[in-house]
């Protein structure tokens, strides 16, 4: 397995298994972080660590990786959009990286330049992403300094194209510029993302909860949100919360 480490296909990385005897955790991490996004190093197969797992799979160690940054040419109209986006006024450093995966293009945008980026994306006649389909958050607690991600799915009806913008923000400073001034449709969707993830959209006209009750504590779709166990009547036992159920790693 070690010899093909260098050219491992990003797409297969999530399902690939590796023998722990050849590489230590730190080696696994170091070898791939330059090109791939390591999500997690998983050990065993049944969520039971150490000798508790008698299946023989207890020694498995495998890294789980998100698709890494793509290299040019991206193919099709992707290059045109990427060039045009980078050529926007003051947008030279806006793009952190570009990922083309499963027929979709994702632009990772620096949060300071998000508002300028979407303004350019909407107004430029070659880009013309006049429709914001969806705004949603994703919480990656292990990505230190970039825990909270927001994905914007933009649609250009003029050119019949879809792109995704992804912006990361640290948990300690969960601020992003609001895009409501460009896409009024993002109003409720940003409220939902604030409600569920606690991301503050600066400049939003009225950033209040939309799905949870106004006085609700916490942001339920964060991965660290405590899930309650359910007390079982008559027995004194509890049904454990879902994040403590057996899971298959």
């Amino acid at each position: 397995m070690t010899d093909e480490k260098g050219n491992r296909d990003a797409r297969d990385a999530g399902t690939r298994t590796q023998d722990a005897s050849h590489e230590t955790r730190s080696e696994l991490l170091r070898s791939d972080t330059t090109q791939l996004e390591v999500v997690e190093i998983r050990e065993g197969a049944f969520g039971a660590p150490g000798t508790g797992d008698t299946s023989g799979f207890g020694g498995l160690t495998r890294p789980v990786m998100m698709p890494g940054a793509s290299q040019r040419p991206f193919g099709g109209w992707y290059d045109e959009v990427a060039d045009r986006l980078a050529a926007g006024p003051g947008l030279g450093d806006a793009i952190e990286k570009v990922v083309v995966d499963r027929g979709e293009i994702t632009f990772y945008i620096r949060r300071q330049l998000l508002l300028e980026t979407v303004t350019h994306l909407r107004n430029d006649p070659v880009l013309r992403f006049e429709f914001c389909s969806s705004v949603s958050g994703v919480h990656f607690p292990h990505e230190t300094g970039r825990e909270l991600h927001v994905a914007y799915h933009l649609l250009s009806m003029t050119h019949n194209r879809r792109i995704r913008l992804e912006v990361a923000t640290p948990d300690g400073d969960p601020h992003l510029p609001s895009v409501v001034s460009i896409y009024p449709t993002a109003d409720w969707q940003e409220r939902e993302t604030w409600d569920m993830f606690g991301i503050i959209f600066d400049g939003h006209p009225a950033l209040t909860r939309v799905l949870m009750p106004d006085d609700w504590p916490g942001h339920p779709q964060r991965k660290d949100y405590p899930l309650g166990g359910i007390p079982v009547e008559y027995k004194g036992g509890t049904v454990p919360p879902p994040d403590e159920w057996r899971s298959y790693s």
Binding site: R11, D12, A13, G14, T15, V39, V64, M65, M66, P67, D101, R102, E104, T106, S133, S134, A151, H153, R162, R164
Partner: peptide, 10 residues
């Protein structure tokens, strides 16, 4: 198992 990554369907 589903390989790591993200997808969008409309």
């Amino acid at each position: 198992r589903v390989p790591a990554g993200q997808a969008f369907a409309s």
